[in-house]
């Protein structure tokens, strides 16, 4: 180091020039709750259990999603459709219990690919927050999409831009 370099002033001046340039640059901030970044079409957020146009659950509890899941986040219990429940479930078999552990889930979307009935898909909502771990195990009630017959607005909103049905 020469003497001039060793008093640091020259290089400090160069550094200061760089930072002051950034002072006047356009800021990269997005004001989050009011302003949202647009997602890509293939964004994978929280799961949604879909219904058909008449509001019946599509899931038949075949278990292919649970098999496909690399993180083993999905558990389910199947049940047989009883008489008089035809307006609730589309097929003869349905998921009595359906749980996704969001702490385990890696949002890979394999469940969506595996599903033969288009019953599960990954929506564009994300960033869940909770006070306890238990809250991150999403039950069927949390996952089911609103009924398109009873609550068409909620259904549309939950469907988002990735409408498949």
């Amino acid at each position: 180091m020469t003497w001039l370099e060793s008093i640091y002033l020259w290089n400090i001046g160069k550094g200061m020039l760089i930072t002051i340039k950034h002072f006047f640059k356009k800021k990269a901030t997005i004001q989050y709750p009011e302003q949202k970044r647009t997602f890509s079409q293939v964004f994978r957020g929280l799961h949604v259990l879909n219904r058909d146009e008449e509001g019946r659950e599509r899931c038949t509890a075949c278990g292919l999603c649970a098999v496909a899941c690399p993180a083993e986040a999905i558990t389910m219990e199947a049940a047989e459709r009883q008489k008089g429940e035809e307006n609730l479930y589309r097929e003869e078999k349905y998921a009595a219990k359906y749980e996704i552990n969001m702490l385990r889930c890696i949002f890979c979307g394999y469940c969506e690919e595996a599903c033969p009935k288009d019953a599960i898909y990954l929506s564009q909502t994300f960033a869940p927050a909770n006070y306890g771990r238990q809250g991150f195990i999403y039950k069927k009630d949390d996952l089911l999409i609103p009924d398109p017959v009873k609550d068409p607005e909620g259904y549309k909103k939950a469907l988002g831009e990735r409408a498949k049905a």
Binding site: T19, H22, F23, A28
Partner: peptide, 8 residues
Amino acid sequence: AAFLQDRI
């Protein structure tokens, strides 16, 4: 600090 780091 924020402005120098391209923040608000």
